[in-house]
């Protein structure tokens, strides 16, 4: 990779800023369309890590969110505001706490998973779970108040009722998944702290972009950036499509 780069990228100190951008975009597309192994590897790892984290947050977030939405208990308001606060957890704070927990002498140090993709999955799941939980909670609560009664009047058991409600909220729940995924795929603080940005092992799109930019390798950084933008665009396009759909009567 180094060798090939030299060919295109001779003396960047002599170039003007505009040339850096134009050249960067050109190189980025070359890297993208020649399916550069390193770029592909990083993208694949990002998808795998963030996808797994989102899946974990989906299970925990939707079930807890649904239970909180459907039950009354003392301190419920406090729990709801806690979840809503969690929707805006700063990734570096999450990274800090996950690092402390996974540190050699930390409570979960025996697992020896700090600076591995697993650690990134854990940190990202911690970030995404409150997001999915908060949106699921709102989604279930926003269903018509009488819908629960209507389902019970149709003879449903409690379990059937909850299942039908979750199915009815499937569009906002899908939005929750998208928001969770969008949040973690673009997150950099926690990933770099608990993953360590180890080349070919725990390097993901965002951490790689940070590093390559720091090194002045704008072509790779821009290729990675374009991929991130593309992913973000796809997520938002699907979200918009969902939001624009009509609700049933």
């Amino acid at each position: 990779m180094r060798a090939r780069k030299k060919k295109h990228w001779v003396n960047k100190e002599d170039q003007r800023p505009l040339d850096i951008i134009v050249e960067g975009i050109k190189q980025a597309f070359i890297l993208l369309f020649t399916f550069d192994r390193e770029v592909l590897g990083i993208t694949w790892l990002s998808l795998k890590v963030s996808g797994t984290a989102t899946l974990i947050s989906l299970f925990i977030g939707v079930s807890v969110g649904t239970v909180v939405a459907l039950t009354q208990f003392p301190g419920r308001k406090f729990v709801v505001s806690l979840i809503n606060t969690g929707m805006g957890l700063p990734p570096v704070v999450v990274g800090l706490f996950v690092t402390i927990f996974l540190w050699r002498n930390g409570p979960l140090g025996f697992l020896e998973i700090l600076y591995t993709p697993t650690a990134i999955i854990i940190a990202q799941a911690v970030i995404a779970t409150p997001i999915v939980m908060g949106i699921s909670l709102a989604a279930i609560q926003n269903l018509p108040a009488n819908l629960r009664l209507q389902i019970l009047a149709l003879g449903a058991t409690r379990f059937q009722m909850v299942w039908i409600l979750v199915k009815e909220a499937k569009l906002p729940l899908l939005a929750a998944v998208m928001a969770g995924f969008g949040g973690v795929i673009s997150e950099v603080g926690a990933s770099i702290m608990v993953g360590g940005n180890i080349k070919g092992y725990s390097r993901v799109l965002t951490t790689a972009t940070v590093m390559e930019t720091g090194k002045g390798n704008f072509d790779i950084a821009m290729a990675l950036g374009i991929i991130l933008l593309l992913l973000s665009f796809i997520v938002n396009a699907i979200l918009t499509h969902i939001q624009q759909r009509e609700r049933p009567r």
Binding site: P144, Q150, R249
Partner: peptide
């Protein structure tokens, strides 16, 4: 009910 409350 007054609202049809149909499923999607």
């Amino acid at each position: 009910f007054q609202e049809p409350l149909l499923f999607d």
